[in-house]
């Protein structure tokens, strides 16, 4: 049984409609209290991302890129403003509902991979499918790993894999549930140039195949240019929304 509702189905890029936004941020503020006083991390973000878009997010350290991504993933609650992702108004969801939302709609790839060290590659990929109570979780995980070129590494543990292989496992895991939205935070930050390129190729290939909306945080301008749009942040604000594709 596949238990993945797909509210954005009609907006897949293979279809003609791509106009309905999958991510909508409206006047999002986030303050954190610290010993030195209030710190404004996000200062009124407005962003609209259409289904199927690939967005490169750039900006200097501390500009709020990662925080914005956490807000979109429902991992951080904004102080004010509205966040609507894949049809859900995140402010209305409690902790468990947010977990369910992520399970169904969002995949995340981290700079540091964050694989579970006690699980083999195939188990790592199967985890989100198991959370979604999909019966053939392991079949799908296996297939997913084969598509990222790791069919011969299924039973290897993270410690037995190279950095590039670990990130490919992470990508396979992020795409396993075929999410509407994939968030990637510096996915090549821990990889050398060639390996990084391979990983990014896989990432874009997967996103294109599933019609997944991709938000990619990077310091690499060249990499950002591979996206359909580049959004630039500075001091918690979007200073450049990039050119929205037609």
């Amino acid at each position: 049984m596949m238990d993945l509702p797909d509210p954005q189905q009609s907006q897949r890029p293979d279809g003609a409609t791509a106009a309905k936004p999958i991510v909508e941020l409206s006047d999002v503020h986030l303050h954190l209290a610290s010993a030195g006083g209030k710190v404004n991390i996000l200062r009124g973000l407005d962003l609209s991302v259409n289904a199927g878009e690939t967005i490169g997010v750039v900006g200097p350290s501390g500009s709020g890129k990662s925080t914005m991504m956490m807000v979109i993933a429902g991992l951080e609650r904004p102080t004010s403003g509205t966040v609507r992702v894949a049809g859900s108004e995140l402010a209305t969801l409690n902790e468990d509902a947010l977990a369910l939302f992520r399970r169904r709609s969002v995949g995340i790839v981290f700079q540091a991979f964050h694989l579970v060290p006690t699980m083999s590659a195939v188990e790592n990929v199967a985890v989100p499918l198991e959370f979604a109570r999909i019966d053939d979780a392991f079949e799908r995980a296996r297939a997913s790993l084969e598509t990222v070129g790791l069919g011969d590494r299924l039973t290897h543990y993270p410690s037995q894999l190279s950095g590039g292989e670990q990130q490919r496992v992470a990508i396979a895991r992020a795409f396993a549930t075929e999410p509407n939205l994939l968030l990637a935070d510096e996915p090549t930050g821990n990889l050398d140039g060639d390996t990084g390129t391979q990983v990014i190729d896989i990432l874009f290939e997967r996103a294109a195949r599933f019609g997944t909306t991709l938000l990619l945080i990077t310091h690499d301008r060249g990499l950002a240019q591979r996206c359909s749009r580049v959004v630039q942040l500075r001091d918690g604000r979007i200073v450049d929304h990039g050119n929205t594709p037609p």
Binding site: E95, I108, V116
Partner: peptide, 16 residues
């Protein structure tokens, strides 16, 4: 802690 945070990112609720 990293494993727990990862599982939560993958959609595991705190109860799980």
């Amino acid at each position: 802690t990293a494993v727990i945070a990862t599982l939560k990112c993958l959609g595991a609720p705190a109860r799980l």
